[in-house]
Design a protein around this nucleic acid. Sequence first.
DNA 1: GCCAACGTTGGC
DNA 2: GCCAACGTTGGC
Length: 137
Amino acid sequence: MAHWLFKTEPSEYSYADLVRDKRAVWEGVANATALIHLRKIVPGDVVVVYHTGNEKSAVALASVKRGAYADPKLDDPKRVVVDLVPTKPLAKPVPLAAFKADTVLATTDLVRISRLSVVPLTPEHFARILKLSGTSA
DNA sequence: GCCAACGTTGGC
DNA sequence: GCCAACGTTGGC
């Protein structure tokens, strides 16, 4: 089971939308590096949902329901998507500033590669996010 | 609104 | 295959 962080612009699709929909196809990832990560994702992987824009905070946990498959709306096998279901919100969000200030989380690609929308997390990163958010797994 | 950091495109 | 120009993302 791997851990990932997905960025989303909350005015376009937020964690609240995922809760409302109960399940979502995570589409629209076009960046080559992000797609490399996305292709490795399998059911049961854990996803930290991160809101960009004004919020700039990790806000919730979600779970992968269906692993990487070609986007049925596109005629391009490289453009894969995954299906997510909501798990729960973080007890308190973890802002980007906290990632940068934390010695463990400063090594995430969220900080190092600011434009990457699908970010791999190590188990240590994930545990640290849970701790800083006051959330139990 | 600006800019840094990339990624992509197209001319050569 | 290189690289300049341009577009996009996302933080500030």
